[in-house]
Design a protein around this nucleic acid. Structure first.
Length: 272
DNA sequence: TTCCAGGACCCTG
DNA sequence: CAGGGTCATGGA
């Protein structure tokens, strides 16, 4: 099925290849990715972009949600633009959007992000899908189902190249098979949801916030990592202790309910 | 060869 | 709590 989206200020490249999602590739002029059970092709056209869903059930409503096309982007930009550092980063990185990914896929993918490079994460998530996910078409595989990963041995999952993170993926999946709380996360208040996610083996402060920001649309959550700390040093040399919770409080105080967006722009800017 | 990659865990003091 | 070592893997 083909769908067209009219939307301003949407950069497919910055959004789909940024490191918030790991299953998109640019092939020629098109971006091709696997979303749920579908292969999606996206291409820029005048006034927005065109999508084609191959093999799969993904509809326009699902895509609108996943790609955050319905987001009130101008309001967000306007709100965080009060800050000069953010304004500067927007000059280069406006058009970046925060996706709304599947929570399980995001959880496992970001468990894979621990002490790892984006390049490797991409490769490993791809291999995981190829080895343990359902085949969609010739070269494309769905992200593995939770009960499949839950049934693997550490030896088996390590063949996907995920290293020491494999055991975390398995135990997290096993916990979810026993008690799938991922739907309930959305009902929890921010800090509570954050702490609940941290109960999974392999999920610490930063990864919990990645999942909240990139899957649950919690735009106020800020994954604090080395880059975030560099951002604080460079732009906000104020007195917040070098402790995760304190830094997150500072980020909130600076940018409020869209702090996740603000720091995503700053992150993209400083990482270059 | 060594170091680092969007960290988290575990053990000490 | 704060500070270390450790964990697989690939690329520079």
């Amino acid at each position: 099925m083909k769908y067209e989206f009219k939307v301003k200020n949407y950069s497919l490249e910055k959004t789909l290849l940024s490191g918030q999602a790991f299953r998109w590739n640019k092939i020629g002029d098109k971006y091709v990715g696997v979303v749920g059970d579908s292969i999606v092709e996206v291409e820029e056209v005048p006034g927005g972009f065109a999508t084609e869903v191959k093999h799969g059930s993904l509809g326009k409503v699902d895509l609108t949600r996943y790609l955050a096309v319905d987001e009130d982007y101008e309001s967000i930009i306007s709100a965080i633009s009060k800050d000069k550092a953010v304004r500067d980063s927007l000059e280069t990185h406006k058009g970046y959007r925060i996706l709304r990914q599947n929570p399980y896929e995001a959880l496992i993918s970001f468990i894979d992000s621990a002490n790892n490079s984006i390049r490797n994460i991409r490769k490993q998530v791809d291999t995981l899908s190829m080895m343990f996910g359902e085949r969609v078409s010739e070269d494309y595989y769905k992200f593995p189902d939770v009960d499949v990963l839950a049934g693997l041995t550490e030896e088996e999952i390590k063949k996907a190249g995920v290293g020491f993170r494999g055991k975390y993926m398995i135990s997290t999946s096993q916990e979810l098979v026993k008690n799938n709380i991922l739907d309930k996360i959305s009902e929890l208040e921010g800090n509570v949801a954050h702490d609940r996610l941290k109960e999974f083996h392999g999920v610490g402060d930063k990864i919990a916030d990645c999942v909240l920001l990139f899957a649950y649309n919690r735009l106020d959550r800020v994954p604090i990592d080395v880059w975030t700390r560099r951002i604080f040093e460079k732009y906000y040399s104020r007195s917040c202790k070098d402790k995760y919770e304190e830094l997150h409080e500072c980020a909130s105080a600076l940018h409020g309910k869209y702090a996740g967006y603000a720091f995503s722009f700053l992150f993209e800017a400083i990482r270059k």
